[in-house]
Design a protein around this nucleic acid. Structure first.
Length: 431
DNA sequence: TCTGGGGTCCTAGGACCC
DNA sequence: TCTGGGGTCCTAGGACCC
């Protein structure tokens, strides 16, 4: 059996933990750059606000309905997430942190005398998380990950379930599949839902009636076959945990939309350098070095101008690296290649790919060994200083921003709550 | 004026090699 | 009209997820 624990409206729930005044009123949280709605309270959903609604379009509506609006505050959400996951790690033999607000538990081998009734176990988990963190959750328990996802949706949708849905019998599995629209199945997105509806397949139950060769043909090859089998209760996806429960990434990206569009090379270079530094930090944190680096620049993606709105270039490194100064130098080379004078740029990003374990690189025949070691030490010290004194305390010249000033590329975040739990300067004040 | 960001997996097709 | 057969590596693109 697998369980999926999913936090309800996670970002909104995090904001509510620290503000009693947000209870029972409509609340939404915006994406980066205050772009779209990405988390909505039940009250905001009831008013008709949709996931992904552009903020500028629904702003009058939000104001009219007195909806409380927040910019996203990842320092807060990340910290609350760690608390939830830390608890979950203590109750199941294996967990896989699937996203910031979802976690799979592998219940195989769980002590059957301690938890003879998994539905009661689910209820206990919910209650404990609520007590410890004030975050509301729902729990789905079923024989496969895909069915656990489905069970979780049902636990959310039907209040009578009291937040827990346990598909322990064939009868319940069948019922759950009949209650689920095909587009709500994990792995069926917009395109597949259209295709399926055209063939008269409306519910998950109807989907499971199809043959594997049909799934292979219409649902993306082996991916579709696995999906079908999982719905039928045959396990295809095991948990994939890493040591700390988080997945070790195969690629690492840092990209941002600029708060205001940029036209000067020096401004964009500053942004790309800063993004490179942040991505390199992520690289070192997971103990990786990158073999390739891509830099991309984007113009207005909603403009009707013909031609591509984005351009990118890939640089293959001579030796895999996680050294910020190396990488910034390459980023500058890449940027020069891409740069078109007179263009108005709205977004830039850096992607590291071809990751390998740092320190295992083939020796560069001409490198002076001492230089490499000194650099490693420098990067370690850099990370320590930034961890202790705050991100950006020590930076490279090309990414430098004066203390107290906001960089020209900085995203918009007009409605941000405090980092109550992670920043000494923003602790919760009781006045 | 304003429309996020960070990932995954899979397939197909081309280049190249023996 | 005929014009090998594998294998690998790389890239681009499509679909999905939260």
């Amino acid at each position: 059996m697998f369980a999926l624990v999913d936090c309800n409206n996670f970002y909104v729930s995090c904001e509510r933990v620290f503000r009693a005044s947000l209870a029972n009123v409509p609340v939404v949280v915006l994406s980066n750059n205050d772009g779209c709605l990405i988390s909505r309270s039940a009250e905001a959903k009831a008013l008709g606000f949709q996931m992904g609604d552009p903020y500028f379009q629904v702003k009058p509506d939000l104001e009219y309905n007195k909806v409380r609006v927040f910019s996203s505050n990842y320092a807060l959400y990340g910290d609350m997430s760690r608390r939830v996951m830390h608890y979950l790690a203590s109750v199941a033999p294996t967990i896989e942190i699937y996203s910031i607000d979802e976690c799979f538990l592998d219940l195989h081998g769980m002590n059957r005398y301690l938890h003879p009734n998994l539905a009661a176990f689910g209820a206990e988990v919910r209650e404990q998380i609520r007590k410890r963190t004030k975050i509301p959750t729902c729990v789905g328990i079923a024989p496969t990950k895909t069915l656990a996802k489905l069970a979780n949706r049902i636990a959310k949708k039907y209040p009578a379930m009291k937040g827990v849905c346990y598909l322990d019998t064939e009868e319940k599995r069948r019922k759950a599949l009949e209650l689920t629209a095909v587009g709500d199945v994990w792995g069926i997105g917009y395109q597949y839902a259209l295709k399926l509806q055209a063939q008269g397949i409306r519910t998950a139950a109807q989907l499971t009636q199809q043959s594997e060769s049909w799934a292979r043909k219409f649902l993306g090859g082996v991916v579709g076959v696995r999906l079908l089998r999982e719905l039928q209760g045959k396990v295809c996806h095991q948990l994939q945990p890493s040591e700390d429960g988080t997945l070790s990434r195969q690629s690492i990206t840092y990209s941002r939309t600029f708060g205001t569009p940029l036209t000067a090379f020096s401004d964009v270079l500053g942004a790309v350098s800063a993004f490179t530094a942040r991505a390199a930090e992520k690289l070192r944190r997971q103990g990786s070095a990158a073999n390739t680096m891509s830099v991309f620049l984007s113009k207005d993606r909603f403009s009707l101008e013909p031609g591509p709105h984005s351009s990118s270039t890939v640089i293959t490194l001579p030796v895999a690296s996680s050294d910020t100064s190396d990488l910034i130098r390459l980023a500058r080379t890449a940027l020069k290649r891409l740069w078109q004078p007179g263009c108005v740029y709205k977004k830039a990003g850096v992607i590291f790919d071809g990751l390998e374990t740092d320190g295992q690189q083939q020796l560069d025949l001409f490198a002076k060994v001492n230089v490499g070691e000194a650099r490693d030490k420098l990067m370690k010290d850099l990370d320590k200083l930034n961890e202790r004194f705050g991100s950006g305390a020590v930076t490279f010249a090309s990414a430098f921003v004066k203390k107290g000033e906001r960089p020209v590329w900085d995203s918009k975040a007009d409605f941000k709550s405090s980092a109550y739990t992670t920043d000494w300067d923003e602790l919760w004040c009781i006045t």
